[in-house]
Design a binder for these strands. Structure first.
Lengths: 184, 184
DNA sequence: GGATTCATGTAATCAGTTACATGATTTC
DNA sequence: GAAATCATGTAACTGATTACATGAATCC
């Protein structure tokens, strides 16, 4: 609903998800199309069949007055902060079972790589949409701040990787030292 | 599977979720029980019916050798970094539609409150399980680092709240100033 | 002629939540 | 006697993913 500030087709919404929201929301076409129909059936959206000059006909959706009201109700509702499941953290948590810290080390290196890619993607988005971040027009203001959220969190994740690698290396060094002593 | 390093009942697993994993994974009993049965049907777990001295009989599950192997395969599989959906960010992103920054401000204050509660919960857990964080026994090491992850991310979220409130206030001040000028 | 993009959808399946249902034991 | 805790589950529903299916227009 939020994305339909301008009328759009399901296909176009998908592109918005892929190009600008992918750091905190993704959606497949197979979810978008049925969802749009459902919202139309509830009277929150209204669609129009438009034959297109190039390519197949497009189904263009726009909000109804009722849809606008529902959206505003949602925007004013309290935020849900229940933490999402992080499977990689669950994996890491049980890495103790493997009894081999070098595995954990490799795992964290992969995480680090992933977070660095995310960070670069954020920076590219920031560059593309917002430049320096100063004097933003109203319609970009919230988008910029949402991006900042992702950026700060990813930086924190990278800081964790550094901290964790340091701790792992310290443990591994202690092990190594103890093993050498045992040999004597 | 990961939680069954020691044999346990579904009820006990639920308590682990609630008491120590709630910052990145939650599960309801109505999910846990069928899941345990499914894993047993797949031969990854094995259960034993134990009449209990106090209260109803308990169904105690333990990993089988096959279950142990599957677990290790999962632990060694690459991390999934696809970002989870954050509904509160989606809300904030579209707050521009409301045309009233004081609403956004109130929203961010609520977020801040929520994150502060999270932070306090983390600190309580840290205190309870790990004390200073120095010289941890092997079985607490990964748990401690997982907690650190949540802590660092929540701190980053709070930093975002501060930054965002400052930006909102700056905008609101500019608006106010401009409105006053218009009055003259 | 072949690949890519535009454009729409359905079906099967999986994961997870909410609500419902039961009942013993312990604590106050 | 009432409330809380221990203990197990089922049913209905919702949300989301994967795979399947179709077909025109454009670009190389």
């Amino acid at each position: 609903m939020g994305l339909l500030s301008e009328p759009a087709t399901g296909y176009e919404l998908k592109q918005v998800f892929d190009q600008t929201l992918r750091h905190f929301w993704r959606a497949e076409l197979s979810q978008i199309y049925p969802c749009l129909k459902k919202l139309e059936a509830r009277g929150l959206l209204q669609s129009e069949h438009q034959p297109s000059s190039r390519g197949p006909a497009r189904q263009v959706y726009r909000r109804t007055a009722a849809g606008q009201r529902e959206l505003e109700v949602w925007l004013n509702s309290p935020p849900d902060l229940s933490p999402p499941r992080l499977s990689f953290l669950a994996q890491f948590l049980h890495h103790g079972e493997l009894g081999d810290l070098t595995r954990s080390r490799r795992f964290v290196l992969r995480l680090q790589e992933g977070f660095e890619n995310q960070l670069r993607a954020f920076e590219a988005l920031e560059e593309h949409w917002f430049g320096s971040g100063e004097d933003l027009p109203d319609d970009l203001f919230h988008g910029y701040l949402s991006l900042r959220f992702g950026l700060l969190r990813t930086q924190a994740s990278l800081a964790w990787c550094d901290e964790t690698l340091a701790q792992l290396d310290r443990r591994l060094a202690e092990r190594g030292a103890r093993a050498e002593e045992d040999e004597k």
